[in-house]
Simulated assay, not measured.
Amino acid sequence: MADIHVEEFYKDAAIALVQLYGAFPRRINLFVEDIAGPDEPDEFGLHSKRHMACFGALLWLSEEGLLRYIDTIRQEALDQAVLTRDAFIRLSSPAPQALAREFGVPEEGSASSLPPSVKEDLSTHIHLIRTALRSGNSARISQIMQTTFFADRGNY
């Protein structure tokens, strides 16, 4: 089992990528509270460790080339954030078949009555991330995010 802060990182990153993908190609403000939940700064105006970890995850996504933004809004949001080309392609691409099967996506050539285009859409990284988030299962979220982060970038 991963450390709790790593599981929270995967969940924060997943939520942020889903929000950005849903708005693509528009730029949006990506608020930490929308991802990690409400936060009340302490008497000195400092945010909680949880809030700062989420903000750090957003900055990390940018540093790793998965999103761009114009500026930060204090430590509360990224202003005018958008997915990068590489992130959009990665999220839109099919996940490995073994992982898609684990998430209930029918295999190619199976007796499923789903059209091939629907099967292909159900096997994309973004669909599996959304499915994992809906399940609330930390292990599933971690698994699909690791697969998404470590996907072969040579195909882009």
Rank of each mutant, 00 (worst) to 15 (best):
Y10R: 01
A14P: 02
I15Q: 03
A16I: 03
V18Q: 02
L20R: 01
Y21V: 04
G22Q: 06
A23H: 05
P25K: 07
R26V: 07
R27T: 08
I28H: 03
V32L: 02
G37A: 11
P38G: 14
P38A: 15
L46K: 15
S48F: 00
S48I: 05
H51N: 09
M52K: 06
C54M: 03
F55N: 02
L59E: 08
L67N: 02
R68H: 11
R68A: 09
T72I: 09
R74V: 10
R74Y: 09
D79H: 12
A81W: 00
L83T: 00
F88G: 10
P94F: 07
P96V: 07
L99T: 02
A100G: 03
P106F: 06
E108I: 08
A111K: 09
S112C: 09
P116C: 11
S117W: 15
S117R: 13
D121S: 14
L122N: 05
I126G: 00
I126S: 02
H127N: 13
L128W: 01
L128T: 01
N137D: 15
N137Y: 12
N137I: 12
S138C: 12
A139L: 13
I141D: 01
D152A: 10
D152E: 10
N155L: 12
N155T: 12
Y156V: 08
